[in-house]
Design a protein around this nucleic acid. Structure first.
Length: 570
DNA sequence: GCCGTTTTCGGCCCGACTGTTTTCAGTCG
């Protein structure tokens, strides 16, 4: 019974209460559930120390329920709720267009408890017989089911980024006088995106909406109004477009960037200052006068806050810190001076060392490290000792003849089950540095895995621990190990923890970056490029660093080459 | 059910779009 089991139960309670039409309690349970999800430590420890009440949103009633659940593995209150309404009705809530009211009508009047029976009922036109339901409603719900079935989860940041930029370019090309910007979770650079939000400032909203819904890749128009339209693209991604006047562009950008939780806090803050905030601006509550609207930074300033970068807007304490004007100076998107994690055709990637070098030069880097796979990783054509020696020679000779970024000879070395590295030390010592990573034996118990990692870190040639948790978004959970101990060891042994910039990895993730940085560990942002074009992936790694509150000084490869070599022995 | 720089009680974010309504409810973000 861990943090996520507890928050899952609380979310379930919230859903049931919402179905029953209970007011306010659902929000209370969800708030508690969210805060437990974000808890840095184990909720079991808080329970043992009788400190559950310290979790924001957890009062006596919820604390009692958590206690019962954790001590007995059973929660009577939840069981009672489950007995009243079948669980399938809750699943209906994840279909767009179906909220609690609709779900309950479908269940009570037609006995619908799952998506399939809902589809059947629609095809038999049984919904249109219900009070308040017409043919259009049936069609709308059917569209919702299609969206639900096609999305199969959230989209990776890298994919959404690409789709959004293409669409934004299209809108800009057709409406040169309009201001077009991405908003929503994409602007916050969250690792996965639910849908794409785009904001336009224009005096002619109708024309923008017309262009938007007639975009080539639009499959289905879900809604079309003067200020707001929604479409589904052929790749299944939903895009919402909002249009506002220039005078409220800043407030709208703030509003549509979210997160929802951040905005809720901001509105409460506005109320406490006798103001109100909406997508049209920040207004004086009494006189209704506009306080700020055209400029996003002004909205924050007028609320007495330091400007909060989009990546921090998750209601994870940023508002309180901004109030004290103590937000960190986050690493910027052009702060990297090199990339220390790149693959070539020597192992499992495409592209030559020379091509990587050229790309690194285009990125304006001072240095770039070649780190192909080590010998045990046969599936990735890991380099034998002999080939690695040869590659080091090639790198040394290329280093002599080219200008441009300085070429470093590295290796992404597998950590074997016992914590030893995949090459003997006499070869490793010829490298400028090694990256350690785990690509096998993911199923060790927590103690063995932690021991394995800490042992590998103690090797002096190791400077970076790549994709430290091993998770792959939507495919593989992190392996089990003690992250706190690994962070400690990384600090002791002068090993940087990587943010792997590959869209499906982004590992460390934002919250773990924050833990590492808070503890004083150093971060390395690597592209893990398997094609020269993928050097550009570091954009997503930097975004993740920013979401983890990392400063430039926390990141190893923002250092100039000579400092990097001196400080890190590379 | 939680919470308190007006509060231990009375609040709890705000507006657009759609459909079926003839003044509004439901859903979404």
């Amino acid at each position: 019974m861990d943090n996520s089991d507890v928050s899952k139960a609380l979310y379930e309670i919230a859903d049931y209460l919402e179905l029953q039409g209970v007011a306010f309690k659902p929000q209370a349970y969800r708030k508690a559930a969210r805060n437990i999800e974000m808890l840095p430590g184990e909720i079991a420890d808080l329970l043992n120390e009788d400190r559950l009440g310290e979790i924001p949103g957890v009062g006596k009633a919820i604390a009692d329920k958590i206690t019962e659940l954790m001590k007995t593995g059973h929660l009577e209150y939840l069981e009672e709720l489950r007995a009243k309404i079948p669980q399938g009705v809750i699943d209906l809530l994840s279909i767009p267009e179906i909220g609690p009211k609709t779900a309950m009508v479908l269940y009570r009047q037609l006995g619908i408890e799952d998506v399939d029976s809902l589809k059947k009922a629609i095809f038999e036109h049984r919904l249109s017989g219900l009070k308040g339901f017409g043919v259009k409603t049936e069609e709308r719900i059917l569209r919702g089911i299609r969206v639900f079935e096609s999305r199969g989860g959230r989209i990776m940041l890298g994919n959404a980024f690409h789709s959004a930029n293409k669409l934004i370019d299209y809108l800009r090309s057709k409406h040169a006088d309009a201001t077009v910007s991405v908003a929503g979770s994409l602007r916050r650079m969250k690792e996965t995106i639910g849908d794409i939000d785009i904001l336009v400032a224009t005096s002619k909203p109708g024309e923008i909406m017309e262009s938007f819904v007639s975009y080539d890749s639009v499959e289905d128009i879900l809604a079309q109004g003067d200020t707001k339209s929604s479409v589904r693209l052929i790749n299944g991604i939903q895009v919402d477009l909002r249009a506002v006047l220039e005078s409220s562009y800043g407030a709208a950008l703030q509003y549509f960037t979210g997160s929802k939780e951040h905005n809720v806090e901001l509105r409460k803050l506005a109320i406490s200052k006798e103001m109100k905030i909406s997508e049209y601006g920040l207004f004086d509550r009494v006189s209704d006068e506009l306080v700020a609207g055209a400029d996003e930074a002004e909205v924050y300033d007028s609320l007495g806050l330091q400007y909060i970068p989009p990546e921090l807007r998750e209601n994870r304490g940023e508002i309180e810190v901004a109030m004290k004007r103590e937000l960190p100076m986050l690493i910027e998107y052009d702060d990297l001076l090199g990339d220390l994690h790149c693959h070539t055709e020597w192992s499992d990637a495409s592209g030559t060392i020379e091509e990587i070098l050229r790309k690194a030069s285009e990125h304006g880097y001072e240095y770039v490290g070649i780190t192909d796979h080590s010998k045990s990783l046969r599936i990735a054509r890991g380099l034998s000792e002999e080939r690695l020696r040869k590659q080091i020679d090639v790198i040394h000779s290329l280093r002599e003849e080219t200008g441009g970024p300085f070429l470093l000879a590295g290796s992404e070395v597998d950590v074997l089950e016992d914590g030893k590295l995949d090459y003997p030390n006499e070869i490793l010592e010829q490298l400028d540095y090694a990256i350690m990573s785990i690509h096998s034996k993911f199923n060790l118990d927590e103690r063995s895995m932690t021991e394995r990692i800490v042992t590998a870190m103690s090797n002096d040639v190791v400077k970076i621990f790549a994709h430290p948790t091993g998770r792959i978004i939507g495919q593989r959970l992190p392996y089990t190990f003690d992250l706190e101990k690994v962070i400690e060891s990384a600090i002791d042994q002068d090993v940087a923890l990587e943010i792997n910039s590959f869209p499906e990895r982004l590992d460390l993730n934002d919250t773990n970056v924050r833990r590492a940085v808070d503890a004083g560990a150093k971060i390395a942002i690597g592209s893990d490029a398997h094609d020269p074009s993928q050097l550009a992936y570091t954009r997503f790694g930097i975004a993740t660093a920013r979401r983890g509150w990392a400063k430039k000084s926390d990141v190893m490869n923002t250092l100039p080459l000579d400092t990097l070599r001196k400080m890190w022995g590379i």
